[in-house]
Amino acid sequence: MSQSELGGPKGAQFSSGSTFISRFKMGIRHHGQECSKGLHEIFRAPISSFMTIAVLAIALALPAGFHVFLKNAQMVSSGWDNATQISLFLKMEISAEEVEKVQNELKNSVKIADVSLIPKDQGLKEFSELSGFGEALSFLDSNPLPDTLVITPTVAHSSPEASEALLIELQEIPEVELAQLDLQWVRKLYSMMAIAQKAVSALGVILGLSVLLIVGNTIRLAIQNKREEIQIIKLVGATDAFIRRPFLYSGLWFGIFAGILAWILVNSSVLWLKDPVRNLAGLYESQFRLSGLAFVEALQLIVIASFLGLLGSWISVGRHLKDIEPT
């Protein structure tokens, strides 16, 4: 420490600090250091950190798990999606020409996308093949089945209300004996799933809030443990931003680890259920396979978790750091 470096004999002067560029460079380096220090901090108390992360992961895994469940339910039922069909059972006495006439009229309707005819003979054949009553049916003198028109409404008219209205309209046609809306229950299932979707979103919000609170509380404890250190650092001229940084990084790391653990929890549960579900699907002659969180979804989960971790620690640091002043 030479005399020239410290200023003239009149006494040293207050300085405005280091240059902007050196501060900027140091800032970046410092961020890197704090980032790894935050990680270090988590590993310093591995058991309590792990428990915190596990609690966070469970809070995240619940909505994520329900999301996966709904996603799979939608996949199962997606084959039924455009299955809103109306079966028109025509009167027995109608001739083939009249059937064709009705079919053509219906084809021209703007509400109807497609009309297909199942002639009574074909209907009987299919029925005897699929029902297992083949033997018994051969004893019948005449075909008991009517000609059937299968109507597929346009997309605009396949909502439950519109298809209901169409059903009533079709019922009015004189040649029609009975109009039946098929798979109305699919629609009901869909609206139930829509409700479930909303419930999952609400659950997600509530559990996201709990993640904020858990991270916030963990960071609050960390701040209290470092009370003295914070006082000392403030005394030697640390800004609030400098003190805040390591806590924000630990919050971020908590979020990242919790996100990864939640992803592991969800996907291992899916893995565990995969075989039984495949067996069940096999019994229904379905090719359905249970799928877990896709890569992008897992990434989203981790990003959301780390954001929540950061936000939780931000709120906590903002609230508690101001209380600690050097004495």
Partner: peptide, 28 residues
């Protein structure tokens, strides 16, 4: 500032304690 009770950070080395004001001020 110098204190009677030193106010050092006991989880860091002597070097790191002394370096603290420089790290805070952003020295290279």
């Amino acid at each position: 500032m110098i204190f009677q009770d030193h106010r050092l950070l006991f989880d860091r080395t002597v070097f790191d304690n002394v370096a603290l004001p420089l790290i805070i001020a952003g020295y290279p």
